[in-house]
């Protein structure tokens, strides 16, 4: 019976394996190129365990920005995670000791797989093994990348671009949804203006705060607009 659950979980996790192993391989290489050996990659993957933010963290670690900027970026970049665990509150609550592990291992990809599970009887066990396997793929890729980066004798100048490429692809996926388009334009416009006005070192936290405020204003306005259409505020 247990074997069956593990087999199902593994099959469910194969798409995650393909994306996690290679993305974290790139992560491990980029860490190594920035002077952080594989054990730092492993430690970060073990404790933080979030795709895009781990990449940004490399540039923060190597450029030495303030802890406030790091905390704010972590907060805003990972805020979506709370909506994921919200979906599975009932499942996780009934998983005993595994609950904390399930909360910690919730990512975009495991969320997507969990949403496809309809096997009522074993769904919680499958969720657990999918989470476990996915985390292993991620850590294995990070370590392999670190070691690979060490083995390659010459400096991989420009390897950091893999982060840019990853973000462009994530954004393209998000833009498939119409409601994401205006927020993305706001994000791009505000951050470009902040970059040109404030310079490279400080524009990030400032633009993130401004964008959050604009989006909050927009979403509360939208709600008012539903029944109070003539109520003009500007």
């Amino acid at each position: 019976m247990n074997k069956e659950i593990i087999k199902t979980s593994f099959i469910k996790s194969i798409p995650i394996m393909c994306s996690y192993f290679f993305v974290s391989l790139a992560y491990g290489i980029m860490m190594e190129e920035n002077g952080f050996a594989w054990y730092y990659s492993l430690f970060t993957s073990l404790t933080v365990y979030t795709g895009a933010f781990q990449f940004v963290l490399i540039t923060f670690l190597s450029s030495g920005v303030s802890i406030l900027t790091i905390a704010l970026t972590a907060l805003l970049m990972n805020s979506r995670q709370m909506f994921y665990s919200l979906t599975f509150v009932e499942d996780f609550k009934n998983m005993g000791k595994k609950k904390l592990y399930m909360i910690h291992t919730m990512t975009d990809e495991t969320y997507a797989v969990n949403c496809t599970l309809d096997d009522e009887k074993n769904r919680r066990d499958i969720m657990f093994f999918v989470a476990l396997f996915s985390r292993c793929y991620w850590m294995a890729g990070a370590v392999a990348g670190g070691i690979l980066g060490q083995l390659i004798p010459y400096k991989l100048e420009g390897i950091d671009f893999c982060m840019t490429a990853l973000f462009v692809i994530i954004l393209m996926e998000q833009l498939e949804k119409k409601e994401n388009r205006i927020p993305a334009v706001i994000g791009a416009a505000v951050s470009v203006i902040c970059l040109l006005v404030l310079g490279e070192r400080t524009f990030m936290p400032v633009s993130m705060i401004i964008i959050s405020l604009i989006l909050m204003g927009r979403s509360s306005k939208e709600r008012n607009g539903e029944n109070l259409e003539c109520h003009h505020t500007e």
Partner: peptide
């Protein structure tokens, strides 16, 4: 309000990150 923000924030933040990469 929080739920609405959570839906639109990720794409805006991703745009900021791309600008950060291209700074």
């Amino acid at each position: 309000a929080l739920e609405r923000l959570g839906k639109v924030l990720p794409s805006a933040i991703m745009a900021v990150l791309i600008v950060y990469c291209l700074k």
